[in-house]
Design a protein around this nucleic acid. Structure first.
Lengths: 362, 362
DNA sequence: CCGGAGTTCTGAATCGATACAGACAACGCT
DNA sequence: AGCGTTGTCTGTATCGATTCAGAACTCCGG
């Protein structure tokens, strides 16, 4: 007895078409996948029969099983979609990823995270994909662990690789150091930072250096550490480098954080934001407080998203090749899936872009 | 002879574990899927052996083939990711969709479009999914046609259904009419509109009523038509209702469009934007021109995205339940996939939210 | 000690395709 | 005529799991 069909409507299959035409299944398959394996005339007949019977082409799941490749990669992202995509940097990076994949006819299976973390391990375990890209997850995220357990190709974006893993990162430290040096050179001595999440616990408030050091989110940690270095050398100690941690990487959060920092004593003359979104929020906060930028307050961002140059004043920021980063990650993953062995780690350069939001303090 | 394995590393399978333990494949499968079908002790042994051999659990592609369900839905979106996700409305809607799906352990396979249209038919044909959601595509998009050809469950968001199709829309016309009536009641007689794409051709410039009528993008067409109705009744004819079409739905585009409209003669005293993003751009344009909002110019948006209330002045806009819309679409699709028959069409209400960006003309 | 009721586990068909190794015919060449 | 090529098409093993019908075993009351 045949077991009950999961879906009892019987869709046409290769066999349906083959029988209709009195040819073999292989021939029908070839009509779709290897036109050179059969005569043009027969191929036309097959395609015509398929159209007539409403056969939509070979079933992707079956083909995937047989070929060992399904034409999709899983993208592990932090937070729910609405949070993750608030950040234009994420959107641009993902766009780069998509553009690298789509040339190869590969789709993106989005695996959104839960509040404050990556996707659920179950979702990862059941994802029908050829590989994974993890974007900005904490190094110890359970979803990431599940992805590793699948032992499929994996590319890590924006956090460091374990032995044998492939990663794409940017020179966060170099960019941050450049910002620190610029502000010092301009004469700033009271500098504060607005950071996005440092931990999975969605905390919002001042962050001390212990919290920074303990963070499993690598990008903000590296940036903050590198930023502080020039200050320390210049004798401006950690005490004079307050950090505000925002629960989300959003403009609104940046505004709140900057407002809090501006209430400090001494009031900072420069605010370093770890993303452009946060920096835009800092600009809002400055406007709220009636402060002129850059006269009363210098503000810097990070990423150089499209909005940075459109801000008023245009934002001094650290450009990172966001689109490129996604593209490179996509190509690396395709290489792995195809059995090629790409270079293990790739660190893309960053570049300080000085615009109108920075200047010497009064 | 066995054909060459697509991937020659031999991963463990159910069989590997079964052999190791001297049990049948069925038993191992049951250990994962039906714990009640075998003794706890044996189940533990199976899971332990799996862990030891590095078996990551049943292969999702094979399971998908057998079960007839793969646990993913394809989302057809217009434009590349970086354009599509510039629109916070899209992000929030997708987030709603994701939240409805993730409860059922279902992922989102993103099928990004190409410049000015939906995803390529090939991508759609080869997507390993249980169904599709189409979001804001043109009614005649080829990618959408490919999705229909798959004859999988399909839910259309923001455009009307053919016979027998399931759709989720909002009361665009009602919202637009409310905006028109508000502005008329305030005393405006020179009203202009900034629209997003009306066609696949990425045009940017003035749009006449023929172009509006011919648009296959349903949401903007309905809004513009409904908007004009009260004006016509009030005697303010079509001639006095200029429309500027933007190539993309972005803040920057809104700024350009509004700037162009403000150069018109007579200068409009109110600008209706078809999205909040465009409206934010219109606010920027007003600031550029030194115009006070709402004193010199009233501006309205559409969607009530999170940014609307944070704008300065806070934006008068038409609230649509974006998150809900995505959720409803997701639930409808899950119903279809499960073989239930949800209501065919669902039209969610819109609501005018009057805030600070509108007032009587000087 | 037998029959019936539970448990626990196995056998084998099946999902829908792909791809190799031929079979077969027609053809050109020496 | 004999032989190697080419060009088409088919047979069949296989991808890695799920699922149902029933086998084997245990337990129990009568």
């Amino acid at each position: 007895m045949t077991p009950a069909r999961p879906d009892s409507r019987d869709r046409p299959t290769l066999e349906t078409i083959a029988r209709q035409l009195g040819v073999s299944r292989a021939t029908v398959s070839n009509a779709y996948n290897r036109p050179d394996q059969l005569s043009g005339a027969l191929r036309e007949r097959v395609l015509a029969a398929a159209a007539e019977l409403g056969y939509p082409g070979p079933d992707p799941a079956a083909r995937g099983l047989r070929r060992g490749r399904v034409g999709a990669v899983g993208v592990l992202i932090c937070d729910q979609l609405s949070y993750a995509f608030t950040d234009p940097a994420a959107v641009v990076t993902l766009d780069g990823l998509a553009s690298a994949l789509e040339g190869e006819g590969t789709g993106l299976l989005l695996l959104p995270g839960v509040e404050g973390g990556g996707p659920s391990p179950d979702l990862v375990r059941s994802a029908v994909v050829d590989g994974f890209v993890s974007y900005g997850l904490a190094a110890d995220d359970p979803g990431l662990a599940a992805a590793r357990a699948r032992s499929l190709p994996l590319v890590l974006v924006d956090h460091p690789a374990r032995r044998g893993e492939v990663s794409v990162t940017v020179d966060d430290a170099g960019g941050a150091r450049a910002v620190g040096e610029l502000l010092l050179a301009l004469g700033h001595r009271h500098i504060a930072a607005v950071s996005f999440e440092l931990g999975l616990d969605r905390r919002s408030g001042p962050a001390d250096s212990a919290r920074v050091a303990a963070s499993t989110f690598v990008a903000p940690r590296e940036r903050l550490v590198a930023l502080a270095r020039p200050f320390e050398r210049a004798g401006a100690g950690a005490a004079s480098f307050p950090i505000w941690e925002c629960a989300h990487n959003g403009r609104h959060d940046g505004r709140e954080g900057a407002t809090a920092l501006l209430a400090g004593n001494p009031r900072p003359t420069a605010i370093v934001a770890l993303s452009d979104e946060l920096a835009l929020g800092a600009l809002d906060a400055a406007a709220d407080a009636g402060l002129d930028v850059p006269g009363d307050l210098s503000v810097t961002g990070f990423d150089d998203t499209p909005a940075a140059v459109l801000a008023r004043p245009p934002l001094t920021t650290v450009r990172q090749p966001l689109h490129r980063k996604g593209e490179v990650a996509g190509r690396r993953l395709l290489d792995l899936v195809a059995g090629r062995r790409p270079a293990r780690v790739r660190r893309l350069p960053t570049e300080l872009v000085a615009r109108g939001s920075t200047g010497p303090p009064r």
